[in-house]
Nucleic acid binder design. Structure first.
Length: 311
DNA sequence: CATCAGGGCCCTG
DNA sequence: CAGGGCCCTGAT
């Protein structure tokens, strides 16, 4: 599908805003739903049922942020509404000054990553599908499964001289028999995709933005295929809950242990330490520490991390 | 070649 | 609340 209508607007995120660290995450598994270059990023999304393409170009600096947003669509849209949505998803109006106080023991990290926001362009539905793709497997297989699913059920979009897939809609995937999904080697996840899609259609993700952390957690856990590990990621990344971190899986506990320089790898003890240390911001704070490690590892591989990080 | 664990979650007892 | 089962893949 060729996307022709184009709308361009220069948006000013609240300073400080670090474009690079807010739009790239070395630990994300690659999907054919977007691309990035220095100071540029392309991605797709489904907005009000319509698949669209978005390009962001950095036109500012950390202290004077400016991002040129280009919207590509088949039909004209209510652009003001869509820009507001992007501001929400990209956390462009967030004030993180309290976070930096909580991170006082990590001055180098605060200095380097000041202005880094959470980067999740996905809506609840897409992120549900992503967390299911991640469960109980290695990244390599996750990538393969994602490609297979996108190729078969996603929408191929053409915009700005590029081609990317947009995630399938829940309605689309619900028409597919479970056996057909299984043929794509997604295994028992086939059932999860279908049941989670059904559950999603009963929810109102916009309403969920306003409920308490506790209620949100309960609602998310009621979705088939969503358990304690996925809830933390969804609450933090999609719903921007700064304190979302109630489960530390063993593989993360080993990494946190090193990051926090403590002599335990017991997930429960680690969680207690994190709760105390990063009161009110534990999800966000750990993201900062984790990103620091990811970028260091990308620039120069860290042996212990390479061994611990599931691949 | 067989075995096994792996960015969890569901279901059962 | 603990533990087995689940699809598949690649490592051993």
């Amino acid at each position: 599908m060729k996307l022709k209508a184009v709308y361009i607007e220069l948006v000013h995120p609240k300073a400080p805003y670090n474009f690079k660290y807010s739009t790239r995450n070395p630990s994300h598994f690659p999907t054919p739903t977007g691309d990035e270059e220095e100071n540029k990023i392309w991605f797709t999304m489904r907005w009000q049922e319509e698949p669209i393409g978005v390009k962001l170009v950095n036109k500012g600096s950390v202290d004077k942020p400016a991002v040129e947003v280009s919207i590509y669509s088949k039909n004209k849209l209510n652009y003001a509404e869509l820009i507001d949505e992007l501001i929400y998803r990209l956390e462009w109006n967030e004030d993180l000054s309290e976070l930096y106080k909580v991170l006082k023991d990590f001055p180098e990290i605060v200095k380097k990553f000041k202005g880094m926001r959470m980067f999740c362009i996905d809506d609840l539905y897409e992120y549900l599908m992503i967390t299911i793709l991640l469960q109980n497997t290695h990244v390599k297989r996750t990538v393969k499964m994602a490609q297979g699913m996108l190729k078969n059920y996603g929408d191929l979009l053409e915009f700005d001289g590029k081609e990317f897939y947009c995630f399938w809609s829940p309605e689309r995937i619900l028409k597919v028999p479970e056996e057909e999904l299984r043929a794509l080697k997604v295994g028992y996840r086939a059932k999860s995709f279908l049941r989670a899609s059904q559950d999603y259609l009963k929810l109102d993700e916009f309403e969920m933005r306003n409920i308490s952390d506790e209620e949100l957690r309960k609602k998310l856990l009621s979705i088939y295929g969503v358990g304690p590990a996925s809830v933390d990621y969804i609450a933090r990344d999609v719903f921007h809950r700064k304190n979302a971190l109630d489960t530390v899986p063993p593989w993360e506990a080993k990494i946190y242990s090193k990051l926090l320089n403590v002599n335990t790898v017991d997930p429960k003890k680690i969680l207690e330490i994190v709760k105390k240390k990063f009161a009110g911001w534990r999800g966000y704070a750990m993201h900062y520490l984790f990103m620091d490690l990811n970028w260091k590892h990308k620039e120069e591989p860290i042996e212990w991390f390479g061994k611990l990080m599931p691949y």
